[in-house]
Nucleic acid binder design. Structure first.
Lengths: 240, 240
DNA sequence: CGGGTACTTGAATAATATCAACAGCTGTGG
DNA sequence: CCACAGCTGTTGATATTATTCAAGTACCCG
């Protein structure tokens, strides 16, 4: 892990390509300037390094500038449960607001850069800003919506379809290609996230490839027939 | 559905028994007074009546004063997916903040009284209050934590145990008996929520009864051996 | 090039869903 | 108060799906 000064590297909320997902939008510019000053550092983590560990003091929120992370917890027997994956523009640690320790652990899936948002300072700023409270509420409220994720009553195939569609939709919001998912996610993790055995996932992905619904090259998935995916998913009354 | 004036019925945030879960805590009293004035009405719904429907304009947040609700969405084929159950002290519609329509539908499981919090007025009040923004963030952040709920990679038995423990813990926060769960929840709904067939749920509940872990009388579940439940659940590094 | 991790594939097994029939309770109207 | 309809929950037999076990292959990184 390396920490650098954002300013020295010309990094600010104003020149951030994912500001629209993060703090850098819906906030008037003088206010954003104040927030920007708060976020002094950007940290760099290598693949496999932890951003933070569950049950440790939550000093920072981490906004992903580039790369990706997984958030997980562990049960008594040491079994891992993946809560979510995070990409550029996502903010890590939100559920620690009003708590003083992180509820999950977060680890880099690939080299990742995260802006370090001091939680205490941000909270104290709430009372003296016009737009920040609403912006934060929006971000969390969106998170609540998006997290809903996988329906428990659904077949393995449906879950895979749901997962791919959800990633695809999140990539869209980031301006990435809708149908070219450069996942840095191991099948191990993906299967854990959607609650099926990884052998089952492997079989389903290959079946989908055979049916020309997707194409797989290592960890990249190309969606070739999104309509069919939606069909398999059985789609729901889309939460927005 | 009947709407009544809170004031006329002597109802306010200050005399509410679940204020500690809702808006009526961590807010200085003059501010709370302003909020209190905002919440003019309390609505009464009979069992089966909808508080709101998915995709309709979100004018209000609804804080449950008494009774319980389920929140659900529906897929294309009309299959229902239960998102959560809500009890006194819970606030419905939070994920609609910063959206202008509800993402789910909410329906009363028994006679329910809900305080109607005008969303727009609440939002406008954010900028002119000291404590409200943080309180709202806390509530949502807690929700994010608590919602995580059922682990996808888990046996039917574990899910039942997890569900009962989670309800029990929520009841505790409300000052209800920890081990006497007066659920107004049909097995149909419970099984849907945890993602197993309702026949399977019925079998498991009876097996647990046989093992003296719980006792069932109609829709009330008495937890007789919470340690064994925890054992079955396999517990995790509890998110707090 | 070697060693380990990640992924694939097949066969056996176990878990849960589904189907079906029935029991019990609840509320309604005669 | 009883009879009946409808809904909710029970229980058994069977079908299906996904997990587990096992062995092997591909791939990545040093």
């Amino acid at each position: 892990m390396t920490i650098q000064h954002r300013k020295e590297h010309g990094i600010s909320c104003k020149n951030c390509s994912v500001a629209h997902l993060c703090l850098g939008s819906q906030i008037k510019s003088d206010e954003l300037e104040r927030i920007d000053k708060l976020i002094v550092n950007i940290a760099y983590f290598d693949k496999g390094q932890h951003i933070y560990h569950s049950q440790t003091k939550s000093d920072y929120l981490y906004a992903i500038r580039s790369g990706s992370c997984k958030e997980y917890s562990v049960d008594i027997e040491g079994k891992e449960y993946i809560n979510n994956f995070y990409f550029a523009g996502d903010i890590l640690g939100l559920e620690a607001i009003g708590n003083n320790s992180y509820c999950y652990s977060a680890v880099a899936l690939e080299p990742v850069r995260v802006c370090m948002i001091p939680l205490q300072s941000l909270v104290s700023m709430l009372a003296t800003t016009q737009d920040l409270p609403m912006r934060l509420l929006n971000i969390i409220s969106n998170k609540v919506r998006d997290d809903s994720g996988i329906r428990l009553t659904s077949s393995a195939k449906q879950r895979v379809a749901d997962f791919l569609l959800s990633i695809s939709s999140r990539f869209t919001k980031r301006g990435y290609a809708v149908d070219e998912l450069k996942l840095s996610i191991a099948q191990q993790d993906m299967s854990n996230k959607i609650g099926i055995a990884f052998e089952t996932l492997s079989r389903i992905l290959h079946a989908m490839q055979k049916d020309k619904i997707i194409a797989i090259q290592s960890r990249n998935v190309q969606i070739r027939d999104i309509e069919k995916l939606r069909e398999i998913s059985g789609g729901w009354e889309q939460p927005l």
